[in-house]
Design a protein around this nucleic acid. Structure first.
Lengths: 199, 199
DNA sequence: CGCATTCAACACCGATCGGTGAAGAAATTT
DNA sequence: AAATTTCTTCACCGATCGGTGTTGAATGCG
């Protein structure tokens, strides 16, 4: 990668095109998104796509990264809340909101992008599973820290609490894909955190 | 359809073959399961498949029905528990178990079969969404009945409670697809039902 | 200018997709 | 046994899959 550009610069906004690709993967899943679907949505040719992003798997990885920094940014934001309970509340509220954003696909790219897949989608499926596991580890580490700070009872199990909260978020994603509203899902989030920490 | 058979009878067990097809759809999703994958697992030819089950969509519908009567039978069983709380407990315990059955694909066919899909998988996706919605309606009706029987408080919202319980089950399915164990998920179920009914 | 690089567009690649047509064997009827 | 029907096997269909090679114009650099 050179700092000084040589040759004709690309004639499209790489970030904007990636955003379009993200939405196609989000709505149709990795295997359900064909190169034709992608290039038409991104407004570029196949050649430009491969030159700018690599192959389909690479594009999917970059789209997921973009998702994490965009609609999925509520995760890192929630982790910075002052107390463990506020972390959980912000995480689930953000989940309810991000999974039902108007004008964007319903649900979560990290869940419906490739939960089950054939041979061609196996890499994408594993990438997403690892991504979800990573998010759960971030929650667990945050709850560990809360135990040490006395914010959670000494006997609390951070891994178990993280799994509990993440399971709700996963369920919220499936519900959103089925048409549940943000209010519906916020009610679920409230109910799930009614007793805290979960036994 | 005639009662008396005419001509050569089929040379394979249609129920056993359907079970195999169910497992392929379960593990690979609708779009990820090719006809070659299906026929190889079922041990029959393409021609036999089309003669016996129709097309791929029809086969998927029959596989889902088979799933509901087999690994998914815990749903109807749970609905028969004597109290609303026992219904919810049996439903989530069954979910934890059915999503982690040894020797079978992890997760739930109704969730990972086609959460997001391209054009070719749109029908399958809608079939599954309707299937999940139907299960949620069964829960809602059971909880309505519990309110009338005084088993749930008069102010309880059956629809909200059903959505809460189903959201946990959906999350359990995603967690199972990511490798969570039955014990992990049973802990989540216990925590989710710690306060009942959910506020 | 001239070199280098990327642009857009399009045909094309082998492979695979879901789905069928043809042909002969096999089993049940009368 | 003859007739009928469905079986199985295999090749094949057009379409689409992800990915590439080519071409000629456009735009940056030195």
């Amino acid at each position: 990668m050179h700092t000084s550009q040589i040759g004709r610069p690309r004639g499209f906004d790489a970030e904007a095109a990636l955003e379009k690709a993200m939405m196609v993967f989000w709505a149709q899943g990795y295997e359900g998104a064909s190169l034709t679907d992608l290039t038409e949505a991104m407004g570029i040719s196949r050649k430009s796509l491969y030159a700018a992003y690599g192959n389909k798997e690479d594009l999917f990885r970059k789209a997921l990264q973009r998702y994490a920094e965009g609609p999925g940014a509520y995760v890192t934001e929630a982790l910075q809340a002052p107390t463990a309970r506020e972390v959980a509340m912000a995480f689930l509220a953000g989940s309810a909101r991000a999974n039902t954003l108007p004008g964007l696909p319903a649900g979560c790219l990290g869940v419906q992008g490739a939960l089950a897949a054939g041979e061609t989608g196996r890499v994408a499926r594993d990438v997403l599973a690892e991504w979800r596991a990573h998010g759960q580890e971030l929650l667990r580490d945050r709850f560990r820290q809360a135990v040490e700070a006395g914010d959670l009872p000494a006997g609390a199990d951070p891994e178990k609490i993280a799994r509990y909260v993440m399971t709700i978020a996963n369920g919220v994603a499936v519900q959103a894909a089925g048409g549940a509203t943000c209010e519906d899902l916020q009610q679920v989030a409230d109910a799930a955190l009614q007793n805290w920490p979960p036994a």
